[in-house]
Simulated scan of single mutants.
Amino acid sequence: MTTAPVPLNSLSRHIDPIRSELIHAASTVIESGFYILGPNVAAFEREFAAYCGTPHCVNVANGTDALELALKAVGVEPGDRVAVTANAAMYGASATYAAGAKVVFVDIEPGCGTMDPECFAAVLRDGRPLKSVIVTHLYGRMAKIDEIVSMAHAAGVMVVEDCAQAHGARLSDGRRAGSIGDAGSFSFYPTKNLGALGDGGAIVTRHEHVATRAAQLRQYGWTSKYTNEIPGGRNSRLDEIQAAMLSVMLPMLDGWNARRRDVANRYSREICNPRIEVPAVLGDQYVAHLYVVRCDSREELRAHLEANGVQSEVHYPNPDHRQPCHQGRFDSLTLAVTESDAATVLSLPCFPELTDAEVGQVVDACNSF
Protein backbone atom coordinates (compact mmCIF):
# COMPACT_ATOMS: atom_id res chain seq x y z
CA MET A 1 0.00 0.00 0.00
CA THR A 2 1.46 3.35 -1.06
CA THR A 3 0.96 6.50 0.96
CA ALA A 4 -0.13 9.83 -0.50
CA PRO A 5 2.74 12.20 -1.26
CA VAL A 6 3.45 15.01 1.17
CA PRO A 7 1.92 18.04 -0.61
CA LEU A 8 3.73 21.32 -1.02
CA ASN A 9 0.54 22.99 0.21
CA SER A 10 -3.06 21.97 0.79
CA LEU A 11 -5.78 24.60 0.67
CA SER A 12 -8.47 22.00 1.31
CA ARG A 13 -6.85 21.02 4.62
CA HIS A 14 -6.52 24.69 5.50
CA ILE A 15 -10.11 25.70 4.74
CA ASP A 16 -12.08 22.61 5.81
CA PRO A 17 -11.95 23.30 9.59
CA ILE A 18 -13.47 26.77 9.12
CA ARG A 19 -15.82 25.98 6.26
CA SER A 20 -19.01 26.67 8.25
CA GLU A 21 -17.75 30.05 9.50
CA LEU A 22 -16.83 31.08 5.96
CA ILE A 23 -20.19 29.97 4.57
CA HIS A 24 -21.93 31.99 7.28
CA ALA A 25 -19.81 35.06 6.44
CA ALA A 26 -20.65 34.76 2.74
CA SER A 27 -24.36 34.26 3.47
CA THR A 28 -24.42 37.35 5.66
CA VAL A 29 -22.96 39.45 2.84
CA ILE A 30 -25.43 38.04 0.31
CA GLU A 31 -28.34 38.92 2.59
CA SER A 32 -27.01 42.41 3.35
CA GLY A 33 -27.32 43.84 -0.16
CA PHE A 34 -23.85 45.48 0.11
CA TYR A 35 -21.35 43.92 -2.28
CA ILE A 36 -18.65 46.52 -3.09
CA LEU A 37 -16.94 48.92 -0.61
CA GLY A 38 -19.52 48.21 2.06
CA PRO A 39 -19.38 47.59 5.82
CA ASN A 40 -17.32 44.39 5.61
CA VAL A 41 -14.51 46.08 3.70
CA ALA A 42 -14.56 48.97 6.16
CA ALA A 43 -14.47 46.56 9.11
CA PHE A 44 -11.62 44.49 7.72
CA GLU A 45 -9.65 47.65 6.91
CA ARG A 46 -9.92 48.68 10.57
CA GLU A 47 -9.04 45.21 11.81
CA PHE A 48 -6.06 44.71 9.51
CA ALA A 49 -4.69 48.19 10.18
CA ALA A 50 -4.84 47.51 13.91
CA TYR A 51 -3.19 44.11 13.43
CA CYS A 52 -0.35 45.62 11.40
CA GLY A 53 0.08 48.52 13.81
CA THR A 54 -0.79 51.27 11.35
CA PRO A 55 -3.62 53.81 11.49
CA HIS A 56 -4.67 53.22 7.89
CA CYS A 57 -5.53 50.32 5.56
CA VAL A 58 -6.92 50.52 2.03
CA ASN A 59 -8.16 47.29 0.47
CA VAL A 60 -7.65 46.68 -3.25
CA ALA A 61 -8.28 43.88 -5.73
CA ASN A 62 -4.96 42.02 -5.55
CA GLY A 63 -1.38 42.21 -4.37
CA THR A 64 0.11 43.55 -7.59
CA ASP A 65 -2.39 46.41 -7.62
CA ALA A 66 -1.45 47.04 -3.99
CA LEU A 67 2.20 47.44 -4.96
CA GLU A 68 1.46 49.65 -7.97
CA LEU A 69 -0.98 51.91 -6.13
CA ALA A 70 1.31 52.11 -3.10
CA LEU A 71 4.09 53.37 -5.37
CA LYS A 72 1.79 55.98 -6.86
CA ALA A 73 0.44 56.93 -3.44
CA VAL A 74 3.94 57.68 -2.10
CA GLY A 75 4.59 59.92 -5.10
CA VAL A 76 6.17 57.76 -7.80
CA GLU A 77 5.47 59.25 -11.22
CA PRO A 78 6.26 58.13 -14.80
CA GLY A 79 9.98 58.25 -15.44
CA ASP A 80 11.01 57.97 -11.79
CA ARG A 81 13.51 55.31 -10.72
CA VAL A 82 12.49 52.56 -8.26
CA ALA A 83 14.90 50.07 -6.67
CA VAL A 84 13.71 46.44 -6.52
CA THR A 85 15.20 43.00 -6.08
CA ALA A 86 15.15 40.62 -9.05
CA ASN A 87 14.38 37.25 -7.44
CA ALA A 88 10.58 37.11 -7.12
CA ALA A 89 8.89 36.52 -10.46
CA MET A 90 8.66 40.18 -11.57
CA TYR A 91 6.11 41.18 -8.91
CA GLY A 92 7.90 44.37 -7.86
CA ALA A 93 9.18 45.07 -11.35
CA SER A 94 5.71 44.62 -12.88
CA ALA A 95 4.21 47.08 -10.41
CA THR A 96 6.99 49.55 -11.12
CA TYR A 97 6.42 49.34 -14.86
CA ALA A 98 2.66 49.70 -14.34
CA ALA A 99 3.37 52.96 -12.52
CA GLY A 100 5.36 54.15 -15.52
CA ALA A 101 8.61 54.11 -13.56
CA LYS A 102 12.05 52.68 -14.31
CA VAL A 103 13.41 49.61 -12.53
CA VAL A 104 16.78 49.61 -10.78
CA PHE A 105 17.68 46.06 -9.80
CA VAL A 106 19.47 45.44 -6.49
CA ASP A 107 21.18 42.20 -5.45
CA ILE A 108 20.18 40.14 -2.39
CA GLU A 109 21.94 38.84 0.70
CA PRO A 110 23.25 35.27 0.53
CA GLY A 111 21.12 32.65 2.23
CA CYS A 112 17.98 34.71 2.82
CA GLY A 113 16.72 36.19 -0.48
CA THR A 114 16.09 39.72 0.80
CA MET A 115 17.64 42.99 -0.36
CA ASP A 116 21.30 43.48 0.53
CA PRO A 117 21.60 46.86 2.30
CA GLU A 118 25.15 47.30 0.99
CA CYS A 119 23.97 46.83 -2.58
CA PHE A 120 21.16 49.31 -1.97
CA ALA A 121 23.69 51.79 -0.56
CA ALA A 122 25.68 51.44 -3.79
CA VAL A 123 22.57 52.41 -5.79
CA LEU A 124 22.13 55.49 -3.60
CA ARG A 125 25.76 56.46 -4.24
CA ASP A 126 25.54 56.33 -8.03
CA GLY A 127 24.32 59.93 -8.20
CA ARG A 128 21.11 59.35 -10.15
CA PRO A 129 17.85 60.29 -8.39
CA LEU A 130 15.87 57.44 -6.86
CA LYS A 131 12.24 58.03 -5.92
CA SER A 132 11.36 54.80 -4.09
CA VAL A 133 12.53 51.36 -3.06
CA ILE A 134 10.40 48.22 -2.80
CA VAL A 135 11.69 46.09 0.07
CA THR A 136 10.34 42.55 -0.28
CA HIS A 137 10.06 40.36 2.80
CA LEU A 138 10.60 37.22 0.74
CA TYR A 139 9.54 33.72 1.79
CA GLY A 140 7.99 35.26 4.91
CA ARG A 141 11.34 36.52 6.25
CA MET A 142 11.69 40.20 7.09
CA ALA A 143 14.45 42.05 5.29
CA LYS A 144 16.86 44.35 7.14
CA ILE A 145 14.13 46.94 6.95
CA ASP A 146 15.35 49.42 9.58
CA GLU A 147 18.75 49.69 7.93
CA ILE A 148 17.24 50.20 4.49
CA VAL A 149 14.62 52.71 5.71
CA SER A 150 17.31 54.75 7.47
CA MET A 151 19.43 54.99 4.33
CA ALA A 152 16.45 55.63 2.10
CA HIS A 153 14.93 58.41 4.18
CA ALA A 154 18.32 60.09 4.56
CA ALA A 155 18.40 60.25 0.76
CA GLY A 156 14.75 61.36 0.39
CA VAL A 157 13.67 57.97 -0.96
CA MET A 158 10.22 56.58 -0.11
CA VAL A 159 10.01 52.98 1.13
CA VAL A 160 7.30 50.52 0.09
CA GLU A 161 7.36 47.18 1.90
CA ASP A 162 6.22 44.21 -0.17
CA CYS A 163 4.59 42.04 2.50
CA ALA A 164 2.77 39.63 0.19
CA GLN A 165 4.55 36.69 1.82
CA ALA A 166 4.99 38.13 5.31
CA HIS A 167 1.59 38.70 6.95
CA GLY A 168 2.24 38.95 10.69
CA ALA A 169 6.04 38.85 10.63
CA ARG A 170 7.44 41.15 13.30
CA LEU A 171 10.70 42.52 14.58
CA SER A 172 11.95 41.93 18.12
CA ASP A 173 10.32 45.17 19.27
CA GLY A 174 6.91 44.00 17.99
CA ARG A 175 6.65 46.15 14.86
CA ARG A 176 5.02 44.16 12.10
CA ALA A 177 5.83 43.94 8.42
CA GLY A 178 4.16 46.83 6.61
CA SER A 179 4.34 49.31 9.48
CA ILE A 180 7.97 50.39 9.11
CA GLY A 181 8.28 51.94 5.66
CA ASP A 182 6.07 54.63 4.16
CA ALA A 183 3.56 52.05 2.90
CA GLY A 184 3.16 48.30 3.01
CA SER A 185 1.45 46.19 0.36
CA PHE A 186 -0.19 42.81 0.94
CA SER A 187 -1.69 40.06 -1.20
CA PHE A 188 -4.55 37.87 -0.02
CA TYR A 189 -4.16 35.31 -2.80
CA PRO A 190 -5.44 31.96 -1.43
CA THR A 191 -1.98 30.46 -0.84
CA LYS A 192 -0.76 33.38 1.29
CA ASN A 193 -0.42 33.12 5.07
CA LEU A 194 -3.66 35.12 5.23
CA GLY A 195 -5.46 34.11 2.05
CA ALA A 196 -8.95 34.83 0.78
CA LEU A 197 -11.08 32.43 -1.24
CA GLY A 198 -10.37 34.57 -4.26
CA ASP A 199 -8.03 37.45 -4.88
CA GLY A 200 -7.45 40.56 -2.81
CA GLY A 201 -4.86 43.00 -1.54
CA ALA A 202 -4.23 45.83 0.88
CA ILE A 203 -2.09 48.91 1.41
CA VAL A 204 -1.27 49.88 4.99
CA THR A 205 0.40 53.12 6.02
CA ARG A 206 0.95 55.48 8.91
CA HIS A 207 0.61 58.49 6.58
CA GLU A 208 -2.89 59.89 6.16
CA HIS A 209 -2.09 61.51 2.82
CA VAL A 210 -0.79 58.18 1.44
CA ALA A 211 -3.96 56.40 2.56
CA THR A 212 -6.16 59.11 1.04
CA ARG A 213 -4.32 58.96 -2.26
CA ALA A 214 -4.44 55.14 -2.33
CA ALA A 215 -8.20 55.16 -1.69
CA GLN A 216 -8.68 57.61 -4.54
CA LEU A 217 -6.46 55.65 -6.89
CA ARG A 218 -8.29 52.36 -6.27
CA GLN A 219 -11.47 53.96 -7.62
CA TYR A 220 -10.50 55.62 -10.92
CA GLY A 221 -8.66 58.52 -9.26
CA TRP A 222 -11.92 60.07 -8.10
CA THR A 223 -11.72 62.96 -5.64
CA SER A 224 -15.51 62.91 -5.60
CA LYS A 225 -17.98 60.68 -7.42
CA TYR A 226 -17.42 60.83 -11.19
CA THR A 227 -14.70 63.49 -10.81
CA ASN A 228 -11.33 62.11 -11.93
CA GLU A 229 -8.58 64.46 -10.79
CA ILE A 230 -5.74 62.02 -10.11
CA PRO A 231 -3.99 60.33 -13.06
CA GLY A 232 -3.11 56.65 -12.78
CA GLY A 233 -6.27 55.48 -11.04
CA ARG A 234 -7.95 52.16 -11.73
CA ASN A 235 -10.85 49.97 -10.67
CA SER A 236 -9.27 47.93 -7.87
CA ARG A 237 -11.60 47.07 -5.01
CA LEU A 238 -11.83 44.17 -2.58
CA ASP A 239 -15.17 42.33 -2.68
CA GLU A 240 -17.37 42.41 0.42
CA ILE A 241 -17.49 38.60 0.55
CA GLN A 242 -13.69 38.32 0.57
CA ALA A 243 -13.43 41.00 3.26
CA ALA A 244 -15.92 39.14 5.44
CA MET A 245 -13.99 35.88 5.05
CA LEU A 246 -10.69 37.58 5.81
CA SER A 247 -12.21 38.97 9.01
CA VAL A 248 -13.05 35.41 10.02
CA MET A 249 -9.48 34.23 9.37
CA LEU A 250 -7.44 37.15 10.72
CA PRO A 251 -7.71 36.09 14.40
CA MET A 252 -6.28 32.68 13.41
CA LEU A 253 -3.25 34.09 11.58
CA ASP A 254 -0.77 34.17 14.45
CA GLY A 255 -1.52 30.56 15.31
CA TRP A 256 -1.10 29.49 11.70
CA ASN A 257 2.19 31.41 11.51
CA ALA A 258 3.46 29.77 14.70
CA ARG A 259 2.80 26.32 13.26
CA ARG A 260 4.49 27.24 9.97
CA ARG A 261 7.52 28.46 11.91
CA ASP A 262 7.61 25.28 14.01
CA VAL A 263 7.67 23.19 10.83
CA ALA A 264 10.38 25.34 9.26
CA ASN A 265 12.58 25.35 12.34
CA ARG A 266 12.26 21.58 12.71
CA TYR A 267 13.50 21.24 9.13
CA SER A 268 16.43 23.56 9.86
CA ARG A 269 17.39 21.56 12.97
CA GLU A 270 16.93 18.06 11.57
CA ILE A 271 17.93 18.22 7.90
CA CYS A 272 21.61 17.35 8.15
CA ASN A 273 22.94 16.84 4.67
CA PRO A 274 26.04 18.73 3.46
CA ARG A 275 24.56 18.86 -0.04
CA ILE A 276 21.52 20.82 1.19
CA GLU A 277 21.86 24.33 2.63
CA VAL A 278 19.06 25.08 5.09
CA PRO A 279 18.06 28.50 6.47
CA ALA A 280 18.82 29.47 10.05
CA VAL A 281 16.40 28.75 12.88
CA LEU A 282 14.42 31.99 13.17
CA GLY A 283 11.92 33.68 15.44
CA ASP A 284 8.97 35.99 14.90
CA GLN A 285 10.64 37.85 12.03
CA TYR A 286 9.91 34.75 9.93
CA VAL A 287 6.41 33.45 9.22
CA ALA A 288 7.55 30.64 6.90
CA HIS A 289 5.39 31.39 3.90
CA LEU A 290 7.88 29.20 2.05
CA TYR A 291 10.64 26.98 3.37
CA VAL A 292 13.48 27.31 0.88
CA VAL A 293 16.69 25.28 0.80
CA ARG A 294 19.56 25.59 -1.64
CA CYS A 295 21.20 22.72 -3.50
CA ASP A 296 23.72 22.70 -6.33
CA SER A 297 22.10 19.49 -7.62
CA ARG A 298 18.54 20.79 -7.47
CA GLU A 299 16.93 18.69 -10.17
CA GLU A 300 18.54 15.56 -8.79
CA LEU A 301 17.21 16.46 -5.34
CA ARG A 302 13.73 17.10 -6.74
CA ALA A 303 13.68 13.70 -8.41
CA HIS A 304 14.84 12.05 -5.19
CA LEU A 305 12.14 13.81 -3.16
CA GLU A 306 9.45 12.83 -5.65
CA ALA A 307 10.58 9.23 -5.51
CA ASN A 308 10.24 9.43 -1.73
CA GLY A 309 6.76 10.90 -1.79
CA VAL A 310 7.60 14.57 -1.22
CA GLN A 311 6.42 17.40 -3.46
CA SER A 312 8.65 20.42 -4.09
CA GLU A 313 8.68 23.59 -6.19
CA VAL A 314 11.14 26.24 -7.37
CA HIS A 315 10.47 29.79 -6.19
CA TYR A 316 11.78 31.34 -8.44
CA PRO A 317 13.79 29.97 -11.38
CA ASN A 318 14.13 33.04 -13.63
CA PRO A 319 15.67 36.27 -12.31
CA ASP A 320 13.75 39.38 -13.31
CA HIS A 321 16.67 40.92 -15.19
CA ARG A 322 16.88 37.80 -17.36
CA GLN A 323 13.17 37.65 -18.24
CA PRO A 324 12.45 37.61 -22.01
CA CYS A 325 10.18 40.67 -21.74
CA HIS A 326 13.26 42.86 -21.24
CA GLN A 327 14.60 41.82 -24.66
CA GLY A 328 18.19 41.81 -23.45
CA ARG A 329 18.12 45.31 -21.93
CA PHE A 330 19.84 44.03 -18.77
CA ASP A 331 22.25 41.59 -20.42
CA SER A 332 25.25 43.48 -19.05
CA LEU A 333 23.90 43.48 -15.48
CA THR A 334 25.25 40.85 -13.09
CA LEU A 335 23.48 40.11 -9.81
CA ALA A 336 25.68 37.33 -8.50
CA VAL A 337 23.65 36.18 -5.50
CA THR A 338 20.32 36.51 -7.29
CA GLU A 339 21.60 34.40 -10.18
CA SER A 340 23.05 31.78 -7.84
CA ASP A 341 19.76 31.50 -5.96
CA ALA A 342 17.80 31.10 -9.18
CA ALA A 343 19.87 28.01 -9.96
CA THR A 344 19.77 26.44 -6.50
CA VAL A 345 16.63 27.33 -4.49
CA LEU A 346 14.00 24.68 -3.79
CA SER A 347 10.83 24.96 -1.67
CA LEU A 348 9.82 22.09 0.60
CA PRO A 349 6.30 21.47 1.97
CA CYS A 350 5.46 24.06 4.63
CA PHE A 351 1.90 24.88 5.72
CA PRO A 352 0.07 24.85 9.06
CA GLU A 353 -1.78 21.57 8.56
CA LEU A 354 1.28 19.41 7.86
CA THR A 355 1.39 16.55 10.32
CA ASP A 356 4.47 15.78 12.40
CA ALA A 357 4.78 12.47 10.55
CA GLU A 358 4.81 14.28 7.19
CA VAL A 359 7.48 16.67 8.44
CA GLY A 360 9.51 13.65 9.49
CA GLN A 361 9.05 12.12 6.04
CA VAL A 362 10.43 15.29 4.41
CA VAL A 363 13.41 15.31 6.78
CA ASP A 364 14.18 11.66 6.10
CA ALA A 365 13.91 12.16 2.35
CA CYS A 366 16.34 15.08 2.46
CA ASN A 367 18.81 13.26 4.70
CA SER A 368 18.82 10.19 2.45
CA PHE A 369 19.71 12.23 -0.64
Score class of each variant (00 low, 15 high):
A244W: 15
Y286Q: 10
P317D: 06
A166L: 08
I108A: 10
M245I: 05
A215Q: 10
A307I: 01
E208N: 10
C272N: 15
H321C: 11
H315A: 14
A50G: 09
G283D: 10
A211V: 13
G156Y: 00
Y91E: 07
H315W: 01
I230E: 00
P317M: 10
G38V: 01
V60S: 03
L130S: 06
A264F: 15
H315Q: 12
G181T: 04
G156S: 08
H153I: 15
T212Y: 03
E339S: 05
A288Y: 07
A166I: 06
P324W: 00
H209D: 15
A166W: 10
F369G: 00
I36Q: 08
Y189M: 04
M115I: 03
G174V: 07
R19S: 09
L335K: 01
I148M: 14
S32T: 01
D284E: 11
A155R: 15
P349M: 12
D262P: 00
D254P: 02
P5Y: 14
N273Y: 15
L11D: 11
C163K: 03
L335N: 06
P274Y: 14
A50I: 03
D364L: 13
N59F: 01
D341E: 08
G33C: 07
R260W: 12
G309W: 08
A169K: 12
D296F: 01
V210T: 15
F369Y: 15
Y189P: 00
H14P: 02
I23Y: 07
Q219M: 14
Y97V: 08
E68P: 02
A211Q: 13
L333D: 06
A183I: 00
S150N: 05
A258R: 07
L11N: 08
D182H: 03
Y226R: 07
G168C: 04
A183F: 04
M249C: 09
C57W: 03
I241S: 13
G201F: 12
W256N: 06
S236W: 13
A98G: 01
S297D: 13
A95D: 03
R302M: 11
R46Y: 02
C325K: 13
A101E: 04
S20Q: 10
P231D: 11
K192H: 05
L37A: 13
A155S: 09
I230V: 15
A43L: 08
V345L: 05
S368V: 07
Y97T: 06
G168H: 02
A342I: 02
E300R: 14
I23S: 00
R329F: 11
D146A: 08
A183G: 13
G283K: 03
R141I: 14
D146Y: 10
Q361T: 15
I203M: 13
S332I: 02
A343W: 10
N9H: 10
D262F: 15
M142T: 11
L217G: 15
D80T: 07
N265V: 12
A86D: 02
F120Q: 02
G195I: 06
P78G: 05
D199E: 10
V82K: 03
I134Q: 14
A98L: 06
V74D: 04
L290I: 00
G200K: 04
M1Q: 08
D80M: 04
E147Q: 12
V106I: 02
Y267I: 00
